[in-house]
């Protein structure tokens, strides 16, 4: 295993009686793109804040570049670029001023920051908006600016909490493209998301979290291989008949998931199964064969959907 930048053992965070993070272990290697996948309330953001040295753990250990964030908070934060779930840009300042002053918070010289700002404006594709107040920016632009701002100190690790939540598809793709570039440049990324497509796109390796615990760990492909079959056949018989046919279908495949509106059948070959079903004169109203995704992995691990 390559050099480990972050290492957590038995990491736990409680808020009163509520356990937000429940004894998790993980490691993040240098240059890796590491994901925390799970529904809202799984403990992803809390874990991120502990790594970012802005939240104190209840128990367990964590080391970031060999340092305990509780004892070396400012040093740990100097290594990180943080993109929070909700943009907290400085609404009284312009785009350029936002980037500039953030560099100054790290104690960087005016000369260095001014040069860096030009570079980041180009990276975030915000050159034309550089003298505009941030309130006037679109959601996607604000997000790009927040990412650029996090890069002003040339961090070793970039922390992205739900980077594309609330963005339209086009803005998401622009953002993903920017993040790919950072990955290519060797920046270590830590990403939380409840979008499986985002996790598949961006993460080399991820942990699936639910109710403060890690349910599984691996690359997206490994997880799918381990916890799902190659293909999924989705069939709908209408809400009344679904219950009726489910026992029959159960006999015909590796695994079955009954959702309120449809039935998911896990098999190696979806088309072949569909033919068998039709041969039994069970005619579904609609049917769809697709590759298994992380959504299926999550369903398997928790019995619930990612987005509820």
């Amino acid at each position: 295993m390559p050099e480990s930048l972050i290492s957590a053992r038995g990491l736990t965070k409680k808020f009163g009686d509520f356990t937000a993070v429940d004894g998790i272990d993980f490691d993040v290697a240098k240059g890796e793109s590491f994901g925390l996948l799970g529904p809202n309330g799984a403990g992803k953001s809390t874990t991120m804040r502990i790594i970012a040295a802005t939240s104190r753990r209840t128990s367990g250990t964590i080391s970031i570049l060999g340092r305990d964030p509780e004892e070396h908070g400012p040093q740990v934060r100097a290594h990180l670029g943080v993109v929070p779930q909700q943009d907290n840009l400085d609404t009284e300042l312009t785009v350029t001023e936002n980037l500039y002053i953030y560099g100054r918070y790290f104690g960087l010289s005016k000369k260095f920051v001014n040069k860096k700002v030009e570079e980041l404006l180009a990276f975030a594709q915000l050159e034309e908006k550089k003298d505009v107040k941030v309130e006037a920016l679109s959601g996607g632009m604000k997000r790009r600016l927040t990412i650029a701002r996090a890069l002003v100190s040339e961090p070793d690790i970039l922390m992205l909490d739900e980077p594309t939540t609330g963005l339209d598809p086009q803005a998401r793709h622009i953002l993903w493209d920017r993040l790919f570039r950072l990955k290519e440049d060797g920046v270590t990324l830590i990403i939380t998301t409840h979008f499986m497509d985002e996790a598949e796109q961006l993460c080399d390796r991820l942990v699936v979290m639910d109710k403060g615990k890690i349910m599984a760990e691996g690359s997206p492909a490994e997880l799918i291989k381990q916890y799902a079959t190659r293909e999924v056949l989705e069939v709908r018989f209408g809400s009344d008949r679904n219950k009726e046919v489910a026992p029959i279908l159960r006999e015909m495949c590796d695994r079955i998931e009954e959702l309120p509106d449809r039935i998911l059948l896990y098999v190696e070959d979806g088309e072949a199964l569909l033919e068998k079903i039709v041969a039994k004169k069970l005619h579904p109203n609609t049917s769809l064969v697709r590759r298994s995704s992380l959504e299926d992995v999550f369903l398997r691990l928790t019995g619930r959907s990612l987005i509820e």
Binding site: P74, A78, H79, I101, G107, S153, E154, P155, D156
Partner: peptide, 27 residues
């Protein structure tokens, strides 16, 4: 030119470094 990490490291042994980075002027 000192990096953000070097600047933070230089401060690390001073008392109260967890609550004060000596940079109120940035605010």
């Amino acid at each position: 030119m000192r990096s953000a990490v070097q600047i933070a490291d230089a401060r690390a042994n001073k008392p109260g470094h967890q609550i004060y980075a000596g940079r109120a002027r940035a605010i």
